[in-house]
Design a binder for these strands. Structure first.
Lengths: 226, 226
DNA sequence: GCTCATATATATCAATTGATATAAATTCAA
DNA sequence: TTGAATTTATATCAATTGATATATATGAGC
């Protein structure tokens, strides 16, 4: 029997030696990321993904076990992409938080962090925005909630919260700083959701710079907060 | 034949004289608002809504034509709720924008507007948050996109944008102000999406005050922006 | 080139879903 | 109270969906 028992997340990772298999697996994952990201778990049919990926239906089962497995694989892929795109910048902040940190230095780190996040999110191919996938899963928990919450959402909020606390010279309570952190991150992800709609009327300008400028302004304001 | 041809949005509004019918119609709409709001159009089955509303399946068809009609009715209901909750505050700003307006006055109006929005959204029964419904539909347009975009999203963004322009004494371009407006509104709606998750760890504090304070800080920062 | 694991394709199943035909019951007005 | 309009309930349909059994093709290693 060729099909193994259903394992955890990635049913069939590589099958080393067979290049083509890995390619179709990637194609399926890619199509799934786009489809799930844009429409959510339930709205997307496995046939849609298969067609979009240029494979037939059983291929999904073959590589990912079932629809849920494919969805989870998408979540894992998104986490990996975030790590790849944001890991380095985040590391710097983590390291700095270990020692003493002046408000100004914290403010600079915070700006860098959000600028990197803005660039990362706005740079992603419009159709395949990881932020929407995450947002949806957090807003109404589905199969991938635990992964995304534990690996992305919570660490991200925590990091931003701690930087905000240092930026404000510990004048904010943890809860207050957390609210600020969530508001700032949400503003970014929310902006991305609305972007296709905005681009309707206004041209698709280089929003990146504008967004970063706005966030910088917010961070500067933090230092002056009561 | 008792069933009429399928009309626009509300298939059966009242059938005046029959009280009970209107009540069950309301119960269905209520269940639909909760279900659709939490999980989106495709994730929810008509049977779920019927069971939750305590009616049988054909009742949905009877009152709303079909699933899509019920979804649209939800959108209309949400628009009505927003108007009810925010209309007065928005009117004040609209009127003020008609004449001359000092930055300070604009700033005050902006603060009032966002405070009202925050209160409105955070006050809504947690399970039945209109913001999630709207957010979802804007992020990935569905049957109710046009309604929500034309009746809520666009007017809201426009109002906030114009107030921001006045707050900054016209130092920001329309696009810059629009970006700011979207970021601020998104921060609120995004915060709401995350709230159930936050309430996991931190207690369900009175986030309203904290959120309003944060938004006020942002608005104050606008006046000082480059 | 043979062989076997790997990969792709065909055909089909059982369950769910939105929707409807149709019948029974309820409500209000005269 | 009667009767017609309105509302609710039963049973069922056709289409879609996720999934699988099964057959065929492809590629790697000897």
């Amino acid at each position: 029997m060729a099909r193994p028992a259903i394992p955890a997340a990635p049913l069939r990772t590589a099958a080393d030696g067979y290049r083509k298999g890995e390619e179709t697996r990637a194609r399926i994952l890619d199509a799934a990321l786009t489809a799930f990201g844009n429409s959510g778990f339930a709205s997307v049919t496995t046939r849609q993904i298969a067609r979009e990926a240029g494979v037939n239906l059983p291929a999904l089962t073959y590589y990912f076990g079932n629809k849920r497995g494919l969805y989870l694989a998408c979540a894992h892929a998104i986490v990996a992409r975030y790590r790849e795109g944001m890991g380095a910048v985040a590391e710097v902040s983590y390291a700095a938080l270990g020692g003493p940190l002046t408000p100004d230095a914290a403010s600079t780190l915070l700006k860098r962090l959000f600028a990197a996040l803005a660039r990362f999110l706005l740079a992603a191919p419009e159709a395949q925005n990881p932020s929407l996938f995450v947002q949806r899963e957090i807003a109404s928990p589905g199969p991938a909630f635990e992964i995304l919450y534990a690996e992305l959402w919570r660490p991200g909020i925590e990091l931003a919260t701690n930087l905000i606390i240092r930026t404000t010279d510990r004048r904010l309570t943890e809860t207050e700083a957390q609210v600020r952190a969530i508001l700032m991150i949400s503003s970014l992800t929310g902006f991305l959701s609305g972007l296709p709609v905005i681009a309707r009327t206004a041209g698709k300008a280089d929003y990146t710079a504008l967004v970063i400028a706005a966030l910088d302004g917010q961070i500067d304001a933090l230092a002056r907060s009561d």
